[in-house]
Structure formats: C-alpha cells, structure tokens
Design a protein around this nucleic acid. Structure first.
Lengths: 130, 130
DNA sequence: AAGAAATGCAACAAACGGTTGCGCGTCCTC
DNA sequence: GAGGACGCGCAACCGTTTGTTGCATTTCTT
C-alpha cells in the first residue's frame, strides 16, 4: 500500500525542523535559507541541508535571483503529503475503532456472565404465557 | 503549538519501519520482536530497537510471558498520534486552500485586464443599446 | 540432560542532523 | 570602480540513530 516515494515524503515531513520550515514558507509565500534560519533554532547551513532534502522529494522548488536563492512550496506535492497523513491516520483510526468495539462486546459478555452465569436463553419457554 | 512530547511522537511514527510495525501489531493484536522481524526487511535486533523506541514514547507496552516478550499497541497514545497527524494535515490544507483562492483571484483579475486593459465599469454606457 | 527457540547485550558501520570554518559570487556604497 | 557587506555553497568534523553480526542467557520441549 505504501511505495518508496511515499516513504520519502513521509520521512521528509517527519523531521520537526522541516515541518516548521514548511509552515514558515507557507506563511511568507517563500523564503531563503538565511531568512528561515532567523526563525529557527538551527544554523543557516542546517536549514540549507533541510531545503535540499525537501527539494529532492519535490516539496519545494528553488529559483535563483541575484545572490539570493528563494524557495517556494510545491502545492501539489504538499497536497500529496497531506493526503498521505490523513490516509494513514484514518487507517489506524479504523483499526482502533474495531478494537474498541471488540473490547466493548467482550465487556458486555463478561458483565452478562457476572449477572447470571448459568442462566440460559430468555425466551425458551416464552410461548403460551398464561 | 507543538510540544517536545509531540515531536517525540512524530519522530516515532516518522520512521517507515516503525509505521509498518504498528500496522502489524494492530493487525495481529500484538506480537514479539522475532515474529515481527519475519514480516519486515530488517533483523530481529533492529526490530527490538524500534520496539524500545515505541515503548519509550508510550505507543506500545510490553509484557513478558515465559521466554517471550509480547508487545501491544497503546490505543490511547496511538489516538493521540493520529490526532497530531490530522491536525498538521488540516493546518496545511487550510493554508493551501487560502493560497489557491488567492491565485484564482489574481488569475481572474489578470484575465479581466487581458480582455480590456483600459475599459472602466461595465454599465457606464449601457442605456440605448440600439 | 540436551538441544531448540527467544531474548538481551556489545561492538561495529553507515547515514543523518547539526556545527564551524572558508572561499566565491553579487550587491551596495563611497 | 574598489572595498566591504551579504548570501550562498563546500568540506571537515561530531554525536545520535539505524542497521548489522556475534555471543551469552533464559526458557521451553523432548
């Protein structure tokens, strides 16, 4: 169900610093390594490496202008990533729900036994009540 | 908005191997390091380390039974993680939507200019069409 | 009691995220 | 237009993570 490309996307957005970088880029509509590093607790070089990673998986694109290298978020690719997140989330959610229902069923059965361990079915002698 | 604990949760589920392990554990309702490693492309020891990571952030719990050490998913904590995923996803989605609307607005304005760069309002000379 | 099965521990290699230091192009200003 | 300031890329290095292999230990089975 998950491809290698998807794994790359995941590990790209798995890093907290990279997630914050994407936030910043979305907020400002783009930015440079130096600019981003001023809002992050890491050096410009570390930011540059992260940008290279994000670029490699297509989550951002760069454009050189003079001595500046400006990065913008690729909306389509980020959409893909978001779809991945919600997909995995809903799969796990579904499994959790199933487990939860199962547990409740077992609990009900247990309580039933606790109430009357040997009592058979209710309606075995239900016909002709009078 | 994101705490250190949340970052730990994220990086725990950020690893593709660990995600597949959670999948397997959910499917089978629990499992051991040796058992999981048979369904994964890594050795038993690597799986054991991953299980230790997942245990440290509370996503799984272990119980020793004889020579076996069986791990189960902590439903509440996984729910937390899923909530995280969907939260980040919806934030990014919202930003993407905003950008998309903005782009469409600009596009409409551009097209309007292309149709008639200097034309003022539509209904200035609308009376007496003949 | 002996062997198979499961785990844990230790040493090691490679990749990752981070730092510092340096050199090179581009812009601004005097 | 010469010189400094600014932004960037490259290389070396360090600590942690992720993976391996090898071995000792515990527990089950026969």
């Amino acid at each position: 169900m998950s491809t290698a490309v998807d794994d790359d996307l995941w590990s790209a957005i798995g890093d907290p610093t990279r997630r914050r970088m994407i936030d910043l880029l979305l907020d400002a509509g783009g930015g440079t390594a130096t600019g981003l590093s001023e809002h992050l607790p890491v050096t410009r070089q570390a930011v540059a490496k992260h940008l290279a990673v994000l670029d490699r998986v297509g989550l951002v694109h760069a454009s050189t202008a003079g001595r500046e290298r400006r990065y913008r978020v690729d909306q389509a690719q980020l959409s893909r990533a978001v779809a991945q997140l919600t997909a995995v989330g809903s799969v796990w959610d579904a499994r959790l729900q199933r487990i939860k229902r199962l547990a409740e069923t077992i609990q009900r059965e247990k309580e039933a036994i606790d109430r009357g361990p040997e009592r058979p079915d209710d309606n075995t002698a239900d016909d002709d009540p009078k």
